[in-house]
Design a protein around this nucleic acid. Sequence first.
RNA 1: CGGGGCGUAGCUCAGCCUGGUAGAGUGCACGGUUCGGGGCCGUGAGGUCGGAGGUUCAAAUCCUCUCGCCCCGACCA
Length: 575
Amino acid sequence: MRWSRFYLFTTREVPKDAEVVSHQLMVRTGMIRKTAAGIYSYLPLGWRSLSKLMAIVRRELGVAGSVELTMPAIQPSELWKESGRWAEYGKELLRMDDRHGRDFCFGPTHEEVVTDIVRKDITSYRQLPVNLYQIQVKFRDEIRPRFGLMRGREFLMKDAYSFHAGEDSLEDAYEAMGAAYERIFEACGLDFIRVEADSGAIGGSASHEFMVVADTGESLVLRCEGCGYGANQEKAETKGLEAPERRSEAADATVVPTPGKTTVEDVAQFLGVEPQRVVKTILYRTETGPVAALVRGDREVNSVKLKNLLGVQDLELAEQDLVEQVSGAPVGYAGPIGLDGVRLIADRSVEGVTAFVCGANQPDAHWVGASLARDVHLDRFEDILLVGGGDPCPSCGKPLTISHGIEVGHIFKLGTKYSEPMGCSFLDDQGESHPMTMGCYGLGIGRTVAAAIEQNHDEKGVVWPLPLAPFEALVVPLNMNDANVVGTADSIYQALLEKGVDALLDDRKERPGVKFNDADLIGVPIRVVVGSKSLANDQVELSLRRDGEKKLVPIAKVAEAVLDEIVGESPRPKS
RNA sequence: CGGGGCGUAGCUCAGCCUGGUAGAGUGCACGGUUCGGGGCCGUGAGGUCGGAGGUUCAAAUCCUCUCGCCCCGACCA
């Protein structure tokens, strides 16, 4: 491709609405253009990188046994009503109606559509398993789209769905897809981790996320350096926290005034105890009534764990009125002692806490010297703890580290969540009908490319890993008025094309400085600079964007040398 | 959904408080110079000041409404 005929316009200015590097660079390099909030056009340079990723995805999913199709972006409400999600899915679902007043939505995901397809074709266990995928534009009406392609409203996603006669078959597909994801992200040169994720209250028996470690990531992941355990924060467990020092417990707990002390920190300081000795009582509202969650004062409740444990649909922090109604005191003074008519769920972190402090269920007062055994009767302790960095690993006990991650892929064992209500069933060898067991597998195309930039850039611009680079090599003639320079550059460019190298020729009549800066910005991995000085010795300059080291190469051997670099840059299989 | 901020040239922004001829840098066009890291000199084109209404002799500037965009928050008692 000749730059002068390509559609590629870089900018020096950083767009004011771009906060993260990947967004800034994608705009500055002319990869994307915002069309509306959270909605982007993919310009030619960006589309080339996205296409490279899509090619890798197609290749690896083929290996995993998934078959490509394309489903409609616009979906009829009937299917969503069948699965129940028309009512469940909130405002993120973009709904619309047609001229006849029929309801539709712009698909944020395609479980309903694919299930509808499969139930019409598959009737026997002999036809299973089935594994289908598509790469398609989706829409989720996010409250706050941000970070460019990282969290857009419209986005490109690969989504795959598998259908099985049973758990074993699902397990096979799940592993095959997980392995494919690892190959894909490895091919992209990404530093990623696979972590356990929450699989929700309904259906799913397992779920993993693929996270790219980056400070700009919006998710939190916990990892163990020791044994390789990894989980996102919603799912993460811990071996058990060290209990605060035991205290002998007085005969009775007493209520003390704590005027205006509504936070654990304030109460602990006011009473002169460690926050670990406070038991925190958090009230939630659910569709099955209020719930009180107990957690050690220095820790937080993991509401996802709590929600799963209770098996409820809705779980939200109780509003002020409900808190007063349930605890008889304003927010800040709830406690487990004498808290009637509310389900009490205690985290394991409170188990060993003796002589503790807790809210007295009356305004401006707390209990001190309370005892679990004497004052609160709890049958058991649950895991509803939000695990943090430093907590012991659940499998080996070493301290976990916490980091931000960008979720680039998510694989999920769905079970029969969709197949059952939608009647997607098959006959087994006994002639009995069963709903199919399903898996689904998502991979964010735009987000993965953004993550790759997030992880591969310097102060001058993008430093593309070769597999995702929009071009593999850039040929830069420095002086467009020098016929020899232009001619040599052109013949090198042609030679590269003949060898199958994805090459870009910067044939613009620009000053060298402009060309160098643009070259650094767009980050093409291999650069061939043709200048009159080295040309005098029949040499050109070859360098890699990654390290910038220049070496002189005879003109006749340039194409060969570029090929060598491409081979050298290609990811090697991990042993 | 709550709070805050911003909409002025293609882009980044001044001007608004204190009403009176629409500005800079960059980009773009043309000419010259330069030709290995966004060089220099000159000339020029380019703006319904987001939109509507109001106040005023006069509104980018003050008031009201509206649209768009951005940021923060949306929970730990």
